[in-house]
Amino acid sequence: MLSVALARLSLSVPKLAPSLTTQCRSIFIQSNPKLFKSTPCLMAEPLKKKKRIDPAVLRAREERKKKKIEKQIRRLEKNSRQLKPIDELEIPPAVFDTLKQRAREPTVISHEEMEERALLLKEWSLYKMKERMNDVQLLDKMIISQQKAMDELRLESEELYQEALAMDLNVMPFTIKGPVHTPPIVNYDSPDGDYTNITKDWFQPLFVKQ
């Protein structure tokens, strides 16, 4: 219907027009109007399809990387803080293996004994508390005494006071011996023997000199 209408129209347009009309005519009935021409892209490679990765997998991968680094850091830190082993505190493997043999027969504690022990513990804690109180009071007394002396000294002379505040470096390092359980024996001839130092050398692995 439309083409008929257009054909009719063409009767009134000048000579040049028919080609346009014919072309226009096919605009609606053909899928490829002849006005548009394209060349196929022959030389190009087809684009790679982008791989889509599951975000969960991605996250897991990231996590693994993080964990690995963290583990390395932890290992380094562990090394740096490694202390000298104290042999005396570690149970020797030989003892560890024979723990069952070494078990003692469990002692049977009578009711009276239990009672006695509990009482003793109570008495002891009371005794220690009193001792502690005495010590604290003693220290307080000394501190107050010193403070009073310093205040009096300051009243007399600021300069002497400042001198008294100064540190006495001659005292350091300070060592003091005793008290011991029995007094030292005068002119004691200690038995001869060889002194062998069996202390192991331990060093920090991080600070090994190359």
């Binding site: 005494s145 010193q146 002396a149 000294l153 505040l165 100064a166 006495d168 005292v171 300070f174």
Partner: peptide, 13 residues
């Protein structure tokens, strides 16, 4: 003997 520090510890008048 070792005198412990420059500060007096007690006072008497």
């Amino acid at each position: 003997s070792i005198v412990l520090g420059n500060a007096p510890v007690g006072f008497y008048k």
